[in-house]
Computed example of a mutant assay.
Amino acid sequence: MNFFIKLQDKISEFKLQINYMKKFPKIVFIGSTNFSLFSLKELYMKQYNIVGVITSPDNPIHKNEKYFSPVKKYALENNIPFLQPGNLLDDTFLKNLKAWNADIQIVVSFKILPKKVWDLPKMGSFNLHASLLPQYRGAAPINWVIINGENKTGLTTFFIEEKIDSGKILFQKEIEIGKEETAGELEYKLKKMSGSMIIKTLEKIMKKQIKPIDQKNINSLKYAPKISTKNCRIQWDDPSIESIYNKIRGLSPHPAAWTLLFFHKKKFVRFKIFVVKKILKKHSIPIGLIFNISSSEMRISVKEGFISIIEGQIEGKKRMNIKNLINGIKIRKNLFVR
């Protein structure tokens, strides 16, 4: 009999904990991308009290069609209130945000927040960043760690402060980067880790079991600025084949490294390159010449050897594997890139 009474007490206690969790803390989730969505789903499925979501405005695709962010789609499907401010300092937006009376705000993959937004909750606002801060502060850490040939990266949660990505660190988790890993593959690995990282951080903040740590002052900081189209062009005369190889995989699949391919009718077309292998070999072939083109291979000459294309996309066509791509090229002699 005592056993059943104790069991009922435990069940009641557990139910009270769940109900408490649903009420406290009141969370505002801020994010827009597919990367953000992993964390939002984790919070929702574990029944945390998400009082609202802030996401980006809809983008028009065609005249009568708009693009919703993945976060907005999820909010609509699960009846979570949301705001889509065009201006984060707009009075109406700030009034609606204050009305949610959040205890804490969680930010994953969103633009820079003004102090009037991140300073609202009494428990603060924390961000999840896809690098091991203080290294790779900025908009594109996943791309730049691969472009720069790093062998490790990770996730960092930190309290948001005035300076971008410079707030006190809450948690970090490190992972290795595979030697052939692309930015897309690395992003997926980090996305799968992100939800549990958010939950762990939130739990420790709630229980006051966390001591935020100042970011270290390092002289040789590496940054991760936004990737531009100009950044993505391949420099075939780079003396390091490793540098060319890292750039291609660090930009794959999006926004994708590109070059100009001398095509038929004596014109250049843009050629995106997604997957390659590097071949180290001494040779005297001019740099940028497409060499040894066959039914299943297309090598581009570089200083230390060859870059062999595995997947690419010629302007006006779909992304293809090398066999299909070559089948679409009628002229196979005197081809080169620049």
Rank of each mutant, 00 (worst) to 15 (best):
D58Q: 11
I210H: 06
H283M: 13
L76A: 06
K303Q: 11
Q8C: 07
I27G: 01
L202Y: 02
V108I: 13
F4S: 09
H129G: 05
D238A: 06
V107N: 00
I244H: 01
F263K: 02
V145R: 02
K208W: 10
L260W: 11
K95R: 10
I300L: 06
K191Q: 13
G167I: 00
E180H: 09
Y223M: 12
S301D: 07
R319F: 03
K281P: 03
L260D: 15
T229V: 06
R137K: 15
E297K: 15
P255M: 04
W118F: 15
L325N: 00
P57E: 03
N148S: 11
D91Q: 12
F263Y: 15
Q84P: 04
K98Y: 11
F126K: 00
H254C: 07
L128F: 10
I234N: 00
G154L: 08
N79D: 13
V275I: 11
R299S: 08
K189W: 12
I314S: 07
K66T: 08
I199Q: 01
F110I: 01
W118E: 05
L113N: 06
K204P: 02
I177W: 00
P85M: 08
E304M: 04
M197N: 04
I279Q: 05
K179Q: 14
I5M: 11
E181W: 00
G184S: 09
N2E: 14
